[in-house]
Amino acid sequence: MTFLQHIFCTTIGRKFLMAVTGIVLIGFVVAHLVGNLQVFESPDRLNGYAHFLSSLGPVLWIERAGLLLCTVIHIWAAVVLTLESRRARGEQHDRTWIQATLASRYMRSTGFVVLAFIVYHLAQFTLGAAQAATYKENLPRYTMAGDYHVLGLTAVREGTVVPDVYSMVILGFQNTAVAVFYIVAVGLLALHLLHGAESLFQTLGWRNRRWSRGLRAVVTIACAAYFIGNLAIPGAVIAGILNPLPAAAASLRK
């Protein structure tokens, strides 16, 4: 067997792929959250950040391609492993769980919801296919009130006219159904990560009894923090703490 066969054609190899792609995807969702939390600072920050990202050009596309590849591999491996495992299993009349965690038992369901969520999320905020009226391209442009810095360097200059992502996000979440779906979805994503993030240590062979309780505690806290962070944005919108910029709000009333 070649290396690729070991990795792609064995159960442990595929689990390894799920773990590695899982790490990348966890890295992405965490970074994404941290970026989005700039919404609480000022419209300037979030809009500058969004403009900076979209101005990356090829780098952005490489990143997107990488994420897509990881997602595809992650899902492919999950599907193949699940089908194989189903084949391996016979019908059992009476099944009791002994110690499997709740999160681990619903990985498939939470995975599906997260996938549906990602599709909608991209349609809403990246492609403008859903809730087109509040899509950034359909809102009045925003003029940067100050410089936006990345790693101490100026990334977007004061006065640059950029899409108003800030208002798009807030207007999008003013639709309660969307906000609730979003909250439920990130809740399930946090649950998915609760098993996934801990499990990847086992798959990569880095877990043992000595510190498994510590690992579980750290992962639980991180997942809770992730959920709260994600809850904060639609929560603040529904609570009226975050409001769209007047220009954007006005353009929608027309």
């Binding site: 067997m1 159960t11 689990k15 194989e84 495992s85």
Partner: peptide, 20 residues
């Protein structure tokens, strides 16, 4: 390598780290 491949070939499923 041999034992894992043999187990796979015999139709055993994969581990989802649930520790049952």
């Amino acid at each position: 390598l041999a034992m894992v491949q043999t187990a796979d070939g015999l139709g055993f499923g994969s581990c989802t780290n649930q520790y049952e």
